[in-house]
């Protein structure tokens, strides 16, 4: 019961306390305005370069924007505590670490999902891209899978934040890597072999590919393999993140470096 309370109530309080993004001054430009302009930018570049169609860039850039809250908010899970001076209290608390950090991931997953859905819906309306209503359910499932897997990667970022002070810079670098490698603007099949190899191990790659297939009219069942891979990758990164958190937490205590990263 205590773990459940920690998971749900602790996660929500942490989300509300640590992320000033709930302010409209941040929420609107970061989650509504920027994703739309990323879509427009790449749609127009795609037209100039003479590649793909608007729908390809709309889907890739809308879905990858789920990564913004997933990566930055999870990085803030540690970085924000440090800035607020509450990191030692968090680490000293007897709370179980798995519900503590996974609970913090839950609102972030929802946030990422909503950002991507907003970008996709409004982007489709403004660009007059047709996404048949029959595909909406499947696309929502694919976006949810991407948000979950990216939050797993974000949890790994949160662990690294015990050693790195500039969590926003780190999250930007990870986001940029996803934009290049995850098939957002260039199909993975059109990339050099080594890039395809990297892409297979990144969150978003399989989810974006599945979203393209679903938008093209394929059934949810036919992309279940890709979505499962996406979720497994998320679980892999989340497990790695929790293990790294445990180890770095221990090392921070041993070396007294918790607040000096």
């Amino acid at each position: 019961m205590n773990s459940l309370r920690l998971f749900f109530v602790g996660g929500l309080i942490s989300y509300r306390a640590l992320f000033g993004w709930l302010s409209p001054w941040i929420l609107i430009p970061t989650f509504l305005f920027a994703p739309l302009f990323q879509i427009f930018l790449f749609v127009y570049i795609g037209r100039t370069a003479g590649v793909s169609d608007d729908r390809f860039f709309l889907i890739g850039n809308a879905v990858v924007n789920a990564a913004v809250p997933c990566l930055f908010a999870m990085g803030n899970t540690i970085g924000g505590e440090r800035n607020a001076g509450t990191l030692p209290l968090l680490i000293a608390s007897p709370a179980k670490r798995v519900p503590l950090f996974l609970g913090r991931a839950l609102p972030v997953i929802l946030n990422g999902f909503l950002v991507a859905v907003f970008a996709l819906v409004v982007g489709a309306l403004l660009l007059r891209v047709d996404l048949p209503p029959a595909t909406w359910g499947g696309i929502a499932v694919a976006i949810a899978a991407c948000s979950i897997s990216c939050t797993g990667l974000g949890l790994l970022g949160a662990a690294v934040a015990l050693r790195v002070r500039e969590t926003a810079v780190m999250s930007n670098i990870v986001l940029g890597t996803l934009i290049v490698f995850a098939g957002v603007n260039v199909p993975v099949g059109a990339m050099p072999g080594w890039m395809q190899g990297v892409a297979q191990w990144l969150p978003m790659t399989h989810g974006i590919h599945a979203t393209h297939d679903l938008a093209a009219g394929r059934s949810l069942g036919s992309v279940s393999g890709a979505l499962l891979t996406e979720l497994l990758l998320g679980a892999f990164y989340a497990t790695l993140g929790l293990a790294l958190l445990r180890w770095l937490e221990w090392e921070s205590r041993a070396r007294a470096t918790l607040d000096t990263a």
């Binding site: 790449f42 590649v51 500039e166 890597t177 934009i179 603007n185 260039v186 990339m191």
Partner: peptide
């Protein structure tokens, strides 16, 4: 770290754009 980001962030976009133009 900031210096690295100022090189890498536009580099990510430039790489994507070069790949798109190459694809076209």
């Amino acid at each position: 770290f900031d210096g690295l980001l100022s090189l890498l962030w536009p580099g990510f976009f430039a790489t994507t754009i070069f790949m798109m133009f190459r694809q076209g």
